[in-house]
Design a protein around this nucleic acid. Structure first.
Length: 228
DNA sequence: AAGAGGATCAACCGCAAAGGA
DNA sequence: TTCCTTTGCGGTTGATCCTCT
């Protein structure tokens, strides 16, 4: 029953002008991030706080990398997506200078299509039955039925239960690998982590999610076997 | 050269979590 | 404990750009 935050009269929508960008940059440089609700008024912007936050995070932040994704970044996204599903903010958190929106767009426009062309279901990272198999080595066993291509199967490892919990997804992965159905070699083994990057130290929830993310990033070989 | 269709990306919307009163 | 406000996230949309015919 909550009102939309942006339904106020006189609130701008759509593309940002250079003046608006500059106002937002100037304000955040002076006052720092935070309190997005009151920021627009304080900065003299006719935008809702939500819009300001999004603009800053996705476009104006000085530490953004921008430009096209590298092969190592792409591989990392695929690995992390296999682990985390569509949790773009978590995935983006492992890619310095990248935003969740950027990662999400790149996944939907590039990686997804690439995987499909390779005969891999991008939703669950399994080989698709109704697509040509790219390599014999991948088609060993346990190709899911055509049901897996339904829209319902829109999360990785969904059949294992609550897909909104990373730990569950992780346990699913363990279950699957231990069950001996390595459709896709993601090199996601559970093992001792040598030296996790400071970047990866989560302030909260030291659960399997961050544990496995460290695993992924500490992987000395950035490329999936799949893409070798 | 121009139009159609596809691809890309910035931005919006709705929901849920987090945190404070 | 409950309610309310704020923030953050993921899905989706729409405008613009690009490529093909």
């Amino acid at each position: 029953m909550r009102k939309p935050c942006c339904d106020k009269q006189g609130t701008n929508k759509g593309a940002w002008s250079k003046q608006e960008d500059q106002k937002l940059i100037d304000y955040i440089r002076t006052h720092g991030e935070g309190c997005w609700r009151s920021l627009p008024k304080a900065a003299g912007l006719h935008r809702c706080g939500k819009s300001c936050r999004l603009r800053w995070i996705n476009y104006l932040r000085p530490d953004l990398k921008r430009g096209s994704f590298g092969q190592d970044e792409e591989d990392l996204i695929i690995k992390l997506h296999a682990l985390l599903g569509n949790r773009w903010s978590l995935i983006a958190g492992r890619l310095p200078g990248r935003t969740d929106n950027e990662v999400k767009n790149y996944w939907n426009s590039h990686i997804k299509r690439k995987l499909i062309q390779m005969g891999i279901d991008p939703n669950n990272h399994r080989l698709s039955q109704n697509l040509p198999l790219p390599h014999k080595q991948c088609g060993s066993a346990n190709i899911k039925s055509s049901e897996s291509m339904n829209d319902d199967a829109c999360q990785p490892l969904k059949s294992c239960g609550d897909n909104d919990r990373v730990s569950d997804a992780a346990s699913c992965l363990e279950d699957e690998t231990s069950a001996g159905s390595p459709d896709l070699n993601l090199e996601l083994t559970i093992g001792a982590v040598a030296t996790p990057s400071p970047l990866l130290v989560e302030e909260t929830q030291q659960n399997s999610e961050s544990k496995m993310a460290r695993e992924v990033e500490s992987d000395p070989v950035p490329t999936l076997l799949l893409f070798r």
